[in-house]
């Protein structure tokens, strides 16, 4: 007659009466099934005891120690994740500086009319053709090139031919180097 798991567990825990304890003990010597059950119960019990021993008490100090050890000294945080503290005084100073620079830029852009900016009176800085002096805005190269493109005065020259003269189309227009023309003649 085999015993149930509860009886065997009580036997293992020494919770049976002495007379019944002896009966179960005598039965275990001849019953392999009950012995296997006892062995299983013993292994479970030992695992539980082992687990209990490994559980630490998570106090505040142990948690902090674990956290501090999780960040290795050599790794460090990248630039964007570091703490960056700007004091209120520094923030206010930077704000005023920004507003002052922005205001100065707007002031000079409004009141500095580059389109009519003349050169200084120093003649060396002026670009002149023989008869037509030019005033060129030179605060940047793009404006200079735009000036040449859109300036009101075209680069043209008008001549009145002597007359009356008899001009006739001689043939197709010709464009050649002077040296080549002289050689041909």
């Amino acid at each position: 007659m085999c015993f149930d798991g509860q009886t065997l567990s009580a036997f293992l825990d020494n919770e049976l009466e002495s007379s019944k304890y002896l009966i179960v003990k005598e039965h275990l010597q001849s019953c392999s099934d009950c012995q296997k059950t006892i062995d299983l119960l013993q292994s479970v019990s030992s695992q539980v005891k082992l687990a209990n021993n490994q559980v630490e008490s998570f106090t505040k100090e142990t948690v902090w120690t674990r956290l501090s050890h999780s960040t290795s000294p050599g790794r460090g945080l990248d630039f964007w994740h570091r703490a960056f503290i700007i004091s209120p005084t520094l923030m206010i100073s930077l704000s005023f500086l920004f507003i002052a620079i922005l205001g100065a830029s707007l002031f000079f852009s409004i009141f500095n009319d580059s389109s009519s900016f003349p050169f200084s009176n120093n003649a060396d800085l002026s670009f002149e053709s023989e008869k037509y002096p030019l005033e060129i805005p030179v605060d940047n190269v793009e404006k200079v090139l735009a000036y040449f493109n859109i300036h009101d005065e075209p680069l043209e020259f008008y001549m009145q031919l002597p007359g009356p003269s008899d001009f006739v189309i001689q043939g197709e227009p010709i464009f050649l180097k002077k040296t080549d023309y002289v050689a041909e003649r």
Binding site: F127, L155, E156, M159, L161, P162, S165
Partner: peptide, 26 residues
């Protein structure tokens, strides 16, 4: 050469100089 006229202009690469010649019939 029975008539000539000189001119000079300052320009930059790509900017044209125009010459207009006007006669009685031309």
């Amino acid at each position: 050469t029975i008539w000539n006229a000189n001119m000079s202009k300052i320009t930059i690469s790509g900017k044209s100089v125009k010459v207009k010649l006007q006669g009685v019939n031309i």
